[in-house]
Design a protein around this nucleic acid. Structure first.
Lengths: 140, 140
DNA sequence: GTGATTGCAAATCTTTTGCACTAAA
DNA sequence: TTTAGTGCAAAAGATTTGCAATCAC
């Protein structure tokens, strides 16, 4: 978009979240936030970063994903017990999970009706509601 | 219930599922299916079995949980990326997940309204719909 | 400078696997 | 018998951690 100050927005975003805009965090944030909603695993993002020439370690990718999540820039989504997924869309929404390919995708906002929630058990509060529709058969 | 032939029902159930009723499978099935709906992790069931004096290995507990699931006697539920949970309730239903304690509980059938499902993407079919309500604050 | 961040390798944790041994039919 | 099932210990993955080196401010 802006070749002269390409990192300005990302830097501001990290600053607001109370995170120092280090080289690694900037590069990862750019990959994560520049192209709309994304669903990544640590390993996937790591590979992508390396391929893009970013020098970063896998441990830092894990740290960064957790820090971004804690700061409210992303959310962790649990769909597979063998891998963690992180979603850059922080608005309440739900997911299609393609079991065969392991891919995760947002359900369009009008795709799923409102959910009639039960009363939470006494002493508890609802923190989040996750709906995952597991799909068989491959997409595209 | 029946002291003379306490394993009859369980044996029949395993046979119907095409599983040989071995000592280990019988003992685990008894723990799992005798007291209504249960949600267990492998480690939890293993501990329970050992405490009950059942001689069984952790590997066999894993195998058994997967075999029971494949046979339709239980379902795997994904709520936590660090651990797998298995549910003895095979009827379509949804879950409360107590984030603080790691406990999983069924949402009463009338607690959650019917869910208006979206059209699955072309080439795919809906395999399962999971709703998890994450709760903060401890329950009893 | 100085405190936060990073990289690396080792450690941890859950789950799976290979294979000789045991038990069910 | 014969084949399925089991236990153990090792392997495999994903994720976390400890700590010295490096970077942002």
């Amino acid at each position: 978009m802006n070749r002269e100050r390409p990192y300005n927005k990302v830097i501001a975003r990290l600053r607001e979240a109370g995170l120092r805009p280090t080289r690694q965090r900037l590069a990862l944030a750019k990959l994560l936030f520049e192209d709309g909603d994304r669903h990544v695993s640590a390993e996937l993002l790591y590979g992508e970063a390396r391929r893009a020439g970013v020098r970063v370690s896998l441990a830092t990718v894990y740290n960064t994903l957790h820090q971004f999540s804690a700061a409210g820039l992303m959310n962790e989504v649990v769909v597979d017990s063998t891998r963690s997924y992180f979603d850059t869309n922080t608005v309440e929404h739900h997911h299609f999970y393609f079991v065969d390919s392991g891919r995760l995708e947002d359900i369009p906002e009008d795709g799923i009706g409102p959910i009639e929630l039960p009363e939470p058990p006494p002493g508890t509060t609802i923190k989040r509601v996750d709906v995952v529709i597991r799909l068989a058969g491959d997409s595209s």
